[in-house]
Design a protein around this nucleic acid. Structure first.
Lengths: 270, 270
DNA sequence: CTTGTCATTTATGTATACAATCTGCTAGAT
DNA sequence: ATCTAGCAGATTGTATACATAAATGACAAG
């Protein structure tokens, strides 16, 4: 059930090749690529033309993206692009840490007498960590292939943890947070920043934490699991901070463009 | 900004007297009153007639309510009423505790040198607690008026706490959780269950925790604040459990009807 | 030159017609 | 009697026309 990550996009009914999906996926990609400036108004007709859909399915996408947090409702009319500060994203990552921490604790607490060791999802976690050991050694900032494998395994680790918690509520909230830019366990930006030696170092520290988490779970140390996962999430913060510092100057890769350094004129739309 | 709780419903643009609002508010009320059985399909045309809106704004409401978590997208067609177990709601309340705990900790950590004492929002918290002291004494299960006042003050306390955290991310997530049945700090069910002596007792314990939270914040004990708030949220669980146990038999007030005892046939729609 | 009002224009909110798809039923065959 | 295929009905997905409210710009008054 909650095993596979697949499933087109879940909500917004309609077969995944519907106009609504085309609009949602297309617009989300545009937004995450920083194609629009924060605060910019999303005019429906031009957007519909650009995405090759009519206004109705586009509207569905706009509403969805507002709930996802990428857009904000303009007080009087339509939608505008939401403004993200680094602080917002850091807080979101920390919330993710809270949720994963709770998931880890519940995984231990709810596994009953037998302990977590018996569960198949726990086997998946262990297998992911085992393979990550070798993948992490391969990582050198050049091998794109190894990095892709790293991401797959890391996501597998985190998904298996959620499965173990058996909590629909946590599952839901995590799925939600994962749609916020840079908040997911393996945020897309890892892909591009992983050349940096500091980032590689952080991936290795993360892998050490993976081991500690497995260890604590096997011992039934629920609180330790929770704390480890909270700290584990903070690695994403560090990683993001590094990527951000790197581009203090001008270029700023497209994926980072949605972030506004500070509050600026966080107030009105203008 | 985040000071007032007002603002019609925030998203779903449109002036608050729009058809979209009528549909959203109307349908949400129907759902929370347990008018539909979990798993039931939400047919658009009958619903539109019932709510006196056309299909287009109704559709907006359906999509919104799916994101809020009250509806689920049927794989192939339309929306169905989501199934809630007591476990789901308990987990959601615990997540609320995590968020409020983080908010309290941030409030202390981010208040800088001067400490939290200087902040106006902290004054609001103290004032709310002060008045709650007298209101709580008045509560006797008969005075509806005192109960209403209790709810207002309690919500003020929790909102001021969020304001102190100065975190848009937490604010957002809390606003979201508050739309889940029984997850808000002063869940609607308090209103009807407060006759029960056990519930009254719980409200008094909660007030004691309020004092402890204020105390810890003044001392700058961030971690203690966090733990207190996590535990504070669990009172809602106890309260809900009491209300639920009370109606083991048959009647089950309308507000509790959306909860299904256990997973039953949590699988398919049928 | 500035400011306020009004008309024009443009974009969004709403309703509805049409198309595509699923559901359920009936009839026929095994 | 049961299962399958095909058809009819109903329901959702999509497009679009129309209504309505906001933004824009022109013009006049101060």
């Amino acid at each position: 059930m909650a095993t596979s990550r697949a499933k087109a996009d879940d909500y917004t009914m309609a077969p995944s090749d519907s106009q609504q999906m085309r609009a949602l996926l297309g617009l989300r990609e545009l937004l995450l690529n920083g194609e629009f400036a924060p605060g910019e108004r999303m005019a429906e007709i031009p957007l519909a033309n650009r995405l090759k859909v009519s206004r109705t399915p586009l509207r569905v996408a706009l509403i969805s993206l507002e709930h996802e947090g990428l857009l904000a409702a303009h007080p009087t009319r339509g939608f505008i692009v939401r403004r993200f500060t680094l602080q917002d994203i850091f807080d979101t990552i920390e919330i993710r840490g809270l949720l994963e921490g709770m998931a880890g604790r519940l995984a231990v607490e709810r596994s009953g007498m037998r302990g977590v060791t018996e569960e198949v999802a726990f086997q998946r976690m262990k297998e992911a960590v085992a393979e990550l050991d070798s993948v992490v050694q391969t990582l050198d900032g050049k091998s794109q292939e190894a990095l892709e494998r790293y991401i797959v395994l890391n996501e597998g680790f985190h998904q298996a943890l959620l499965d173990l918690a058996r909590s629909e509520s946590i599952e839901r909230e995590m799925q939600r947070l994962a749609k916020m830019p840079f908040a997911a366990p393996s945020s897309g930006f890892v892909r591009r920043q992983a050349e940096l030696p500091e980032s590689l170092h952080i991936l290795r520290i993360g892998q050490d934490q993976h081991h500690a988490i497995i260890d604590a779970m096997m011992s039934g140390e629920a609180t330790r699991v929770e704390n480890l996962l909270r700290e584990h999430a903070r690695l994403s913060r560090r990683n993001l901070q590094i990527a951000f510092d790197k581009h203090r100057g001008e270029p700023m890769p497209s994926s980072l463009r949605i972030i506004r350094e500070s509050a600026e004129n966080k107030g009105e739309t203008r």
